[in-house]
Design a protein around this nucleic acid. Structure first.
Lengths: 238, 238
DNA sequence: CGTATTATTGACTCCATTCAAAGATAGTGG
DNA sequence: CCACTATCTTTGAATGGAGTCAATAATACG
């Protein structure tokens, strides 16, 4: 009985992330084949590492619940946050090139995740060819995302914050969370480290948005009052 | 006779880029299998497109000779140059996610390239499993590269130029070109569009490096006089 | 030779950073 | 429960680096 419940909890077939995570393009049969290979990992706490920059690449990771940050350090040692990760997102593709992870993944709150072992990638893809393309799509998505961030790196602080907030809202919505009020699991410093800004600038911009009536801010809790207004900031309405 | 010469010219087995391009990790037999699928493409001229942002994804492209730029436009229509491409580099991985290219590839001079058709990716990987991992490595390389650019996006104009020049020098060396004197196939505007700077700032920084005796500049022709000095600019020697 | 493109240089401006201080919140132990 | 501390956040003032505007110079090209 308890085994039945456990089986129910851990399989990809019954995961509520099937439309976002790796199973998204697959048939039921294919998801079953995938599910056998995927290893579930229990909860880790805030600040704990999923993997570290420089670790040997041994798996692709899917965030199951909670959130994490993808962190890399520049030559001066400052931390740059490459991405904030929400449930259903796959990470670790950057590790294939040098057989070691190019960035660290750190939990931002209590977080669980699943692992697709590296040594089974080939055999799994032989068995389930669709996974090959699906994996590539996720890898491609990572490239697209990073490229878009790069393109946004030269816009103003105001635009950066607006893009970040609306983007987060969209991603939360996609996952069934509230998209207009949420806690940002990042400090001002971390938000700055993600957007290429200082913590003071982040603070000032959030205040400005609040004064404009676009959002309400209470520390990490954000309420979006005018989503379109935020979008207008960067979608060239000049 | 002429057919023999042609066969010699076009196969992956005899390409001088075998240590950089897709064949880099493969056995001779595997390279032969790869070579059958790869389509060679003749010369295109400066300014011509290899593919356009929005085009349906139909192949992975390998630059064979010449150079190209990977370009995306932001919301205001400014062009951001995601990367400068040299022989042996693979592009197009960003197209898998949405089944259409997320950026445009444009020749910077007379350029030739090879195509790995999208519809044959699966079958090729079934036949030659090593290619699966090799393709992923190239995709991973693209992620690493873009992430590193993102990390560098918040450093100073001086550091950006130094990183760009030394990086280009390293890549040219790897390909057997002269690494201390070369023509940059970009205008000041394009260099700025790649580094997140204005053309004026690029011009001023190159002048500054010249005044410091690090390089000699004559329009697009650059001579590096003190490579280590350039590296010291960004490798925290303070 | 004339035109278009590309590059240089200078002066001024502005946005984000830096420096500095104070305020708010969460967590800990007595 | 309160005091104490560490961490996080807000706010102000001053600075500086890169952008903008503008004019000129050099080069390429038809």
């Amino acid at each position: 009985m308890s085994r039945l419940i456990k089986d129910f909890q851990v399989s990809c077939e019954n995961c509520n992330l099937d439309a976002i995570c790796l199973p998204r393009g697959l048939s039921q049969k294919e998801v079953e084949d995938l599910s056998i290979v995927v290893k579930r990992h229990g909860m880790i706490q805030k600040g704990e590492y999923i993997y570290r920059q420089g670790d040997e690449f041994n798996c692709i990771v899917a965030i199951k619940s909670g959130s994490a940050k993808l962190v890399a350090n520049d030559v001066q040692g400052n931390e740059y946050i490459l991405n904030v990760l929400l449930p259903g997102e796959l990470i670790g593709f950057d590790g294939l090139y040098h057989s070691q992870y190019n960035s660290s993944a750190v939990a931002l709150e209590a977080t669980s995740f699943c692992e697709l072992p590296a040594d089974q990638l080939e055999t799994l893809c032989m068995k389930v060819p669709s996974i090959f393309r699906e994996l590539f799509k996720h890898s491609s998505e990572a490239i697209n995302d990073t490229q878009n961030q790069l393109i946004n790196s030269k816009c103003t602080a105001e635009e950066k914050l607006a893009i970040f907030l609306t983007g987060l809202s969209d991603r939360l919505k996609k996952r069934g969370f509230s998209s207009l009020q949420f806690n940002i699991p990042l400090t001002r410093q971390e938000m700055g480290g993600h957007l290429g800004l200082t913590l003071e600038t982040v603070s000032r911009m959030l205040k400005q948005f609040q004064n404009q009536g676009l959002i309400s801010v209470k520390r990490r809790y954000i309420e979006i009052n005018d989503l379109q207004g935020l979008r207008d900031i960067y979608s060239g309405s000049d």
